[in-house]
Simulated assay, not measured.
Amino acid sequence: MKNTLFSLAVLLTMLTLPALAQTNYDAEIATMEAQDKTPPANGILFVGSSSIRYWDGLKEAFPGKPIIQRGFGGSTMSDLIRYIPKLVLPYSPKQIVVYEGDNDIGQQNRSAKDVYSQFLTFFMLTRKQLPNANITYIAIKPSPARRKSMPASAEANQMIKQYLAGQRNTAFADVYTPMLGANGQPRPELFKADSLHMTPQGYEVWKGVIGPLLK
């Protein structure tokens, strides 16, 4: 009954979200579900778009931490909401580290307020089911390929940061600021040739910010 009510809540939430072109990730999610039938208890779940998916050595970056890596490339906040029952709840993680919003703004031209609103939906649905889990949001990164999106990304980051500051058992990982150079522009050495995905140096910046926030 509890799962049924949660599914209905997700459905109602999705019906009230702005109309978005949605990608079917069922096959990719099924592959991730099959990766380990016995995930670590009280794990730290990293979930989100390609910046999580392509983080080679994520588990090794935080030795001794029960990391679960569940990124699905190209995803948006609404995709994450849709897959909460498959990607989040089954693991009963002690901490959820979220990276979404980048594609919402950069690909779908959503506003900062759209991202903020959908993050609140994710937060409230997840907190209702996992009341004791720490929820950590990774700031939307500043990418050279998405310079035009940087003001909206910075605005969304600030809104989410302010919200989490008033909530218990949460954290905001500000990777945005250290990824900028002295000129206020994205540091080119942190990005691959596509100017969107990160190099190992970029992930080192993330590691330095996120590491102290892990439980």
Results as ranks from 00 to 15, higher is better:
M32D: 14
L89A: 01
F123P: 04
P178T: 10
P90A: 02
D36R: 05
G57T: 05
K207Q: 14
F191L: 12
I52P: 02
Y83D: 00
G202C: 04
A145N: 10
E204R: 11
A154C: 12
N132V: 08
P131R: 01
P90K: 00
A145I: 07
S153E: 13
M179I: 06
T31R: 14
Y54F: 14
A139Q: 02
K65F: 02
K59P: 04
A21W: 09
P131G: 01
W55Q: 00
V175L: 09
A171W: 05
T121I: 11
V205C: 07
K192Q: 15
M14E: 14
S117F: 03
T76I: 04
P212V: 10
D56L: 09
E100T: 03
N109Q: 11
V97W: 04
A27R: 11
L58N: 02
P212R: 07
T13D: 12
P151Y: 02
F123D: 03
Y99C: 01
M32E: 13
G106V: 03
M14G: 06
P142Q: 04
V10I: 13
I140R: 00
V10S: 04
R70F: 05
R127M: 03
G181K: 08
G43S: 10
R147F: 13
T38E: 09
K161N: 11
Q185K: 15
L11D: 14
N109I: 06
L12C: 13
T177D: 07
L190T: 07
I160F: 05
T31M: 14
D104G: 00
Q107V: 05
V97T: 01
G71M: 00
G106A: 12
S111Q: 02
R70I: 05
S149T: 11
A19L: 15
R168G: 15
A27K: 10
A61H: 01
I84Q: 05
T177Q: 10
T16K: 11
V209M: 09
F191T: 07
L180T: 08
